[in-house]
Nucleic acid binder design. Structure first.
Length: 574
RNA sequence: GGGCCUGUAGCUCAACGGUCAGAGCAGAGCGCUCAUAACGCUUUGGUUGCAGGUUCGAAUCCUGCCGGGCCUACCA
């Protein structure tokens, strides 16, 4: 048994996330966490909302709510959706928590003590009409390069040229449209990650087992241009974690807050502390997961995220951890494995929040159960390259894999048994046919476990499907509907074995389709779902005489008319 | 512009220097009738983007060309 810490990239607070967000972080992390728990490991699975930053403030303003209220409300929305998708977080926290305030300020103090913080006087655009400093991309104007009238201050979307807001012709606030913009001086803290370039490169160099996506992005940022750049970690905003140096005030930084990208990864730790406090554990309850000097030395820590998050998790956050560890008085846990994902597209294009294009988490659960989404998304997860959601593929995958192969197996076994044998698990002795299945499943289970251990989720889903198929093959060859007329004892043995297969499938499928798994176990009236170590023993688990029932259809098929309706409904504003 | 990834059967993907390049879906045929018109068996289908090179041997390594995607640092 190992101790495994799993974090999913934090969903940003400003609204319901779409399937593309879900597929690359929370969902694969959940599948892995469920698997690791099932294997008997001590797992802590942490997620939280990422609540700070300009977009949150603007979204709250647009909703006419105080930002704290807005975030509290949207946290609940996201929490309910996570529950709806059966995401098995041990804790779903908030980056605005008191725990995160304290930890973020603590880390800033540690970094300052280590000489890794510099104070930089810089010039930022201030908008009196909006009453705030504007991030580059919140300033729009005409591109000096191509004349595109809606270029953003960081980059022109039309000609892709990198811009500085002061380059724009007729710049205006993207929020209010105000052209009354001024350049103001403001002081900010920078994390001197450039000083840690060699140390980071050495560390990344040891991670030969990571997805290339993770390491190549990290190396690119380390070596591109002048190399890794220092990064501003404070902002002139109201909503955020006040800049402090540990418990002390930070002279000259009054009224400023930490940058969301500084405090968000620290919330992995913060949320663990929230969990410890919420569950009556003391400080050591979270420290034993995060402090190698306080009991976390044997923890294996894995992070799940989309590729856009990789630079912060391979460089900035590790720099924060390494910096805090520098004097040897504290020893914080560095990540051991970064599982990163490409993007999921929608019908050949991008998911678009602004255009309402694609399926969002709330809509998904409105139309179909979580298991359908979980299965299709994980069996098509963008591991190697970007992948594409189409309704046709979704319909085909769900109908074939879940309804026909798994659901129908459960249905044909239980219905046949109930009609011809009885609704109690019969006696029976296994013969060569069963031995052959046991041998095959022993091999296939090893392959499934190997794929899951390696977090190769597409491959794992294929292996799991092959395990389901083996049941249909067996049933076809064993033909209990024939045996029941000629050799009732044989028919009983086949039914006994098949009912045990359902139980085995429930156990093995639980990481991907937890609700269906629960329905299967419920139909068998059994609670013991421990992971098998011996397939032969696992297929003789059900007690003779135990009652079972015929469950409702596990997965209803999606017919063509329904699919076409979905296609039209989610195509987005024309 | 630079960097990274990628181009394998109609579709989605495996095979990561070595037996006839595999699997699922879709298509075709047969079988079964317990089951959600489900299942099983068999089968059609690929000069592995193109052109060179290295090697006893290349989808796999190298070079060039053509095509697709992503990233390029203060939105998160």
């Amino acid at each position: 048994m190992s101790r495994i810490l799993i974090t999913s990239a934090l969903p940003y607070i400003n609204g319901v996330k779409h399937l593309g967000n879900l597929v690359g972080s929370q969902l694969p992390a959940d599948v892995f966490a469920r698997y690791m728990r099932a294997r008997g490991n001590e797992v802590l699975f942490i997620c939280a909302t990422d609540e700070h930053g300009t977009p949150a403030e603007l979204a709250a303003a647009a909703a006419g709510e105080p930002v704290a209220d807005y975030c509290a409300r949207l946290w609940q929305v996201q929490k309910d959706l996570a529950d709806g998708f059966r995401l098995s977080f041990d804790h779903f926290g908030r980056s605005s928590s008191p725990e995160n305030h304290r930890l973020t300020q603590h880390f800033a103090g540690r970094l300052a003590d280590a000489g890794l913080i510099s104070e930089v006087m810089e010039k930022q655009i201030y908008s009196p009409a909006d009453g705030r400093f504007l991030p580059d991309r919140y300033i729009t104007g005409t591109c000096p390069n191509c004349g595109y009238p809606r270029a953003r201050g960081d980059q022109c979307e039309n000609c892709t040229k990198q811009l500085d807001p002061t380059d724009l012709i007729e710049p205006r606030s993207a929020i209010s449209g105000s052209t009354d913009l001024e350049v103001r001086e403001t002081k900010h803290l920078y994390l001197r990650q450039s000083l840690m370039r060699d140390e980071l490169r050495r560390w990344i160099g040891t991670k030969t087992d990571w997805p290339v996506l993770s390491t190549s992005i990290a190396l690119k940022w380390l070596d591109d241009g002048d190399g890794l750049q220092d990064r501003g970690i404070t902002r002139d905003l109201d909503w955020g974690i006040p800049v402090k140096r540990g418990n002390e005030e930070w002279p000259g930084m009054e009224g400023k807050v930490f940058y969301v990208w500084f405090d968000a990864p620290i919330e992995y730790i913060g949320a663990t502390a929230e969990w410890a406090h919420a569950t009556g554990r003391g400080e050591d309850g979270w420290q034993r997961w995060w402090r190698c000097d306080l009991g976390a030395a044997d923890v294996r820590y894995l992070e799940f995220m989309g590729k856009d998050n990789v630079p912060f998790h391979t460089l900035s956050f590790p720099a924060t951890i390494l910096g805090a560890n520098q004097d040897g008085r504290e020893d914080w846990k560095l990540v051991d494995y970064i599982k990163s994902f490409n993007y999921l597209n929608y019908e050949g294009g991008k998911f678009s929040t602004s255009e309402g294009r694609g399926v969002f988490m709330d809509q998904a659960l409105d139309i179909l159960p979580a298991d359908y989404w979980r299965w299709w998304l994980m069996s098509n997860v963008p591991e190697g390259s970007d992948s594409n959601f189409t309704w046709e593929s979704f319909q085909a995958g769900v109908n074939k894999d879940l309804a026909d192969v798994l659901g129908n197996f459960v249905s044909r076994v239980t219905k046949f048994a109930a009609a011809r044998i009885g609704t109690e698990v019969p006696e029976g002795t296994y013969g060569p046919a069963e031995e052959a299945v046991i041998e095959e499943l022993t091999r296939r289970l090893a392959a499934y476990e190997a794929a899951m251990d390696a977090i190769e989720l597409r491959k794992a889903s294929q292996e799991l499907r092959a395990i389901w198929v083996a049941g249909n093959e067996y049933l076809q060859a064993a033909a209990p509907w024939t045996a029941v007329k000629t050799d009732p004892a044989r028919a009983a043995a086949i039914v006994r074995f098949s009912l045990n297969l359902i139980r085995l499938y429930a156990v093995l499928s639980q990481p991907f389709v937890p609700d269906a798994s629960a329905s299967m176990l419920d139909a068998l009236g059994i609670e013991d779902a421990h992971w098998p170590t011996d397939i032969g023993a696992a297929l003789d688990m059900l007690a003779t005489g135990a009652a079972f029932s015929v469950p409702d259809v596990l997965f209803a098929k999606i017919d063509d008319a329904r699919r076409e309706g979905f296609e039209a409904r989610f195509a987005g504003a024309a």
